[in-house]
Amino acid sequence: MPDAMSHLAKIGPCPQLSGQGSAAHGRVLVVDDNPESRGILLRYLADRQFPAVGTTGNDLARRLERASFSFVVVDVRATHGDGVELLRQIRARSEVPVILVAGQICNDLDRIVCLELGADDVLRAPLNLRELIARMRATLRRQEAGRRAVAAGPRGGYRFDGWVLDQRTRTLKNPAGQTVYVTKTEYALLVALLETPRRPLARAQLMRATRAHEDIHDRTIDAQVLRLRRKIEADPAAPQMIRTGRGRGYMLDASVETLP
């Protein structure tokens, strides 16, 4: 990871944010097959109150099974394995936030695939270490906000076209009463649509609602809408509930009842 090494040599200490000590962060797992670049990133994280341990792609599964982490950073460029496969290994074992560091040839479609498979962020080379830290802190802030919202107590839910979304348990049930699994992003997308029935929401609004980064292509939302349609529409090719507004994003075309 020569770009990260040269960048590290040029920057000084990063100012610490109050209330963001190591106890709050927990441990970070750095996945990188190159011992030199892995060591540089481990030291950089430790200097900024992110205690970290390193591993290789081949040892990733064992590490996840033996310990818990608050974050995983995978340098796809420096691992001999497939980045998508490594991401699948992580998601099969944990919901820990994951940032992938990809090469310069990583395009928008590659990033969308990784995000759909469960990555929380994808950074392109050359890696800016300050941006990596900023992205990690932003992800942890969103995670903490979600925990506080859950701790605040039950929030009811919604009933629409025979479907029920229970926000207390974060479960979606079809008209037959069967639970239908939705990802965190699909859940956030559905809640945003349910809160504004029969009113078009622009892609930018949906991206903010799902907490996607603004620099991600609009096709990210299009892909998520397609996946959600496959789960709740009788015919996803001819959707009746989640409709496309011509040039105006998407809207939920259904009567919605708010549950106490």
Rank of each mutant, 00 (worst) to 15 (best):
M1Q: 01
A4N: 05
S6Q: 08
H7K: 07
G12F: 04
G12K: 13
G21V: 03
A24V: 09
G26F: 06
L29E: 09
D33W: 00
P35R: 05
S37C: 13
Y44E: 13
Y44K: 13
L45D: 06
A46N: 14
D47G: 12
A52M: 02
G54T: 03
T55L: 11
T56N: 13
N58F: 05
L60E: 13
R62E: 13
R63Y: 01
F69I: 07
F71H: 12
D75M: 11
R77E: 12
R77P: 00
A78F: 00
T79C: 13
G81S: 13
L86P: 00
R88C: 08
Q89G: 05
R93E: 08
P97R: 13
A102E: 10
Q104T: 13
Q104I: 11
N107H: 08
E116H: 12
L117K: 15
G118D: 05
P126H: 02
R130V: 07
R137S: 06
A138H: 12
A138G: 13
T139C: 08
L140T: 03
Q143V: 02
A145F: 01
R147V: 09
Y158A: 00
R159L: 09
V164R: 15
T169H: 09
K173C: 09
K173H: 13
N174Q: 07
N174D: 15
T179E: 15
T179K: 15
T183K: 12
K184T: 15
A188S: 14
L190R: 13
E195S: 14
L201T: 03
L201Y: 01
M207T: 11
A209M: 11
A209P: 10
H213W: 02
R219S: 10
T220Q: 07
D222E: 10
Q224E: 10
R227D: 03
I232Q: 10
E233M: 08
P236Y: 01
M241V: 02
G245K: 15
R246V: 04
G247V: 14
M251S: 05
E257M: 05
E257S: 04
T258A: 11
